[in-house]
Design a protein around this nucleic acid. Structure first.
Lengths: 235, 235
DNA sequence: TAGAATATCTACTCATGAGTATGATCGAGG
DNA sequence: CCTCGATCATACTCATGAGTAGATATTCTA
């Protein structure tokens, strides 16, 4: 990047005098770059990573493949960028919640709500489904680290919740797996079933996580199996 | 299959007189065929469908690619067979539970336990991750139908549970998505983390699904945020 | 307006992997 | 011991798709 500036003006004075066109160019380029990443995310979303060629992505943008390569280095980086766009909101959610004076369960709920919305968004699929098997070792490590950071964040909130009494005693690791799994899976069905908005889905899920299936109303009927028989007989 | 028998003995008498060698052959073939499918499942498990070539699978069996093609028609069918091997235990679980005289929540729990164990098994990955995008339209329909059958089965149990009072009122569809999602996700992490057996995992998950995160002990401490501050200060 | 930097296209290379044509081998029955 | 069918290997074809080389268009600067 320095070399680009240095070559026309070795002394390095004129670039400082007229920075605006450079800036404009750079922003323009960045906008297009993001468009490429978004188009890739949409394509991966629809057809999966392996069933999407860079020609497909280029066609969606009404350009040709080399143009795509002008903005991203290769397909793997493209997936990685989509992944980053997907995780960033989740990391933000952790930061946002970090200093709230709330019991840990409520902080966890807030994170999970953001998490669910992130998974349902455009980049959700890429974030959830970026497989280390598809990536170079270096990328794989990087992605695993980011995923692990989130996982550990959830576990920590669960541990804190157990300590402060806002969460029932449980295995933090397994519980984190269960919660994240339920939310991750949204990426699989949300394309086909958009009957609820991402925010609504996240809210429903968090409610379920909190209370579980067991009825909480005091007037819960004890094991009355005959009722079921009756139901089946009526058909 | 008839043509194979008919060609050596057009009259069709000798085959009935000596069925044993044919039977033995067929069983032998079937055993090998299953070995091919299991090897494929293991390979898909480790490297993913698209990163596994039929040469890989053949090498794992110490044969060559045409030999694999002698037992299965193509890669897609191979994935489909793995998928079937994965779902079958789950369908069996539904049948097993069908006529039990138990509240629906307990029947649901039993199904979910089997479901979890199935996902953690050898074919779990193939079942969970068989993407319609990777398959021909016909296969895709077939797989979707089987997945939908299971989904609908879970929803039905949830509805029955709400009716018989064993499950708290909720949205059956979303709840089914959440439960199945949490369990499906086991396929993603179980390879790397086998600290618990499939049965133990399933049990932990079902317990969580039942009770949720909110503490059930009467002596639950109300929102005491200061506790958390203390924790952070100590570091 | 020359010319440099930016942006895009045409037309390739090259590796991989699915699927196959054809021939070799082996074991059982006549 | 010879034949026939079942089994398996060698050695291909062929399509696809990632990535690139080099030419071309566009735009800004001097």
């Amino acid at each position: 990047m320095n070399s680009r500036r240095a070559s026309p003006h070795p002394a390095g004075k004129s670039p400082a005098a007229s920075p605006s066109p450079w800036r404009a160019r750079r922003r323009d380029r960045e906008v297009k770059r993001e468009a490429v990443i978004r188009a890739a995310a949409r394509a991966f979303n629809r057809k999966g990573y392996h069933n999407t060629s860079l020609d497909d992505i280029a066609a969606a943008l009404e350009v040709t493949k080399p143009t795509v390569y002008y903005y991203v280095t290769n397909k793997e980086h493209l997936l990685f960028q989509c992944f980053l766009a997907g995780v960033e909101p989740i990391r933000a959610a952790f930061r946002e919640v970090k200093d709230l004076e709330l019991p840990a369960r409520e902080r966890l709920n807030a994170v999970l709500r953001h998490y669910g919305e992130a998974v349902a968004c455009e980049f959700g699929w890429c974030m959830v489904r970026a497989e280390d098997q598809d990536l170079s070792p270096a990328m794989s490590r990087h992605i695993k680290a980011l995923k692990s950071e989130i996982d550990q964040g959830i576990r920590r909130l669960i541990r804190e919740g157990i300590q402060d009494g806002s969460i029932e005693s449980c295995d933090p690791k397994m519980t984190a797996f269960a919660l994240a799994g339920a939310l991750n899976w949204i990426a699989h069905w949300y394309r086909e079933d958009q009957s609820l908005t991402p925010a609504e889905i996240a809210a429903v899920f968090v409610t379920l996580f909190e209370g579980g299936l067991r009825p909480r109303s005091a007037a819960q009927v004890a094991t009355r199996a005959p009722l079921r028989r009756r139901v089946r007989i009526t058909r």
